[in-house]
């Protein structure tokens, strides 16, 4: 067992699950989406991105790309949330919340691709 692989798999999976958890629930209802969960998703996604730095294989490059997409989408979601709750006069309304959740939905797609890549990599490694 390779500890590096464990840590890598852990963060990739955790990024996807946190993202999924935040995405669950009615899109426009702020009550159903926890800000700490979004924060955790951003942080874990950033860590997963850094873990993918410096891999010169083809699959490593795609890994990095998906993680960058997910991180950017989640950071965008966090920015929209901050704008809604701190700047906008109307406060956190349903429209803003829907934007946040749909952005995190996009990130979720990228995270799913990441997990698929992880599985593909693992399976093809065992075949050899």
């Amino acid at each position: 067992m390779n500890l590096e692989k464990v840590v890598f798999g852990f963060f990739v999976l955790l990024a996807a699950t946190l993202n999924f958890g935040f995405f669950l629930g009615d899109m426009s209802d702020p009550e159903l989406h926890n800000s700490y969960e979004l924060f955790a998703a951003v942080v874990v996604n950033l860590i997963a991105t850094v873990l993918k730095f410096g891999d010169r294989t083809q699959i490593g490059a795609v890994h990095l790309a998906t993680s960058l997409v997910a991180s950017l989408q989640l950071i965008a979601a966090a920015l929209v949330w901050t704008y809604g709750s701190e700047v906008s006069a109307g406060g956190m309304d349903g429209e803003t919340m829907a934007a946040v959740v749909s952005l995190s939905g996009g990130a979720l797609l990228a995270n799913i691709v990441s997990v698929v890549l992880l599985v593909v990599e693992t399976v093809s490694f065992q075949r050899r």
């Binding site: 942080v43 950033l46 860590i47 850094v50 873990l51 730095f53 410096g54 010169r56």
Partner: peptide, 15 residues
């Protein structure tokens, strides 16, 4: 690549 690889741990610690 070398920079990215070596900077993994410090950046994760910072995050």
């Amino acid at each position: 690549l070398l920079v990215l690889r070596r900077m993994r741990t410090p950046i994760i610690v910072l995050i």
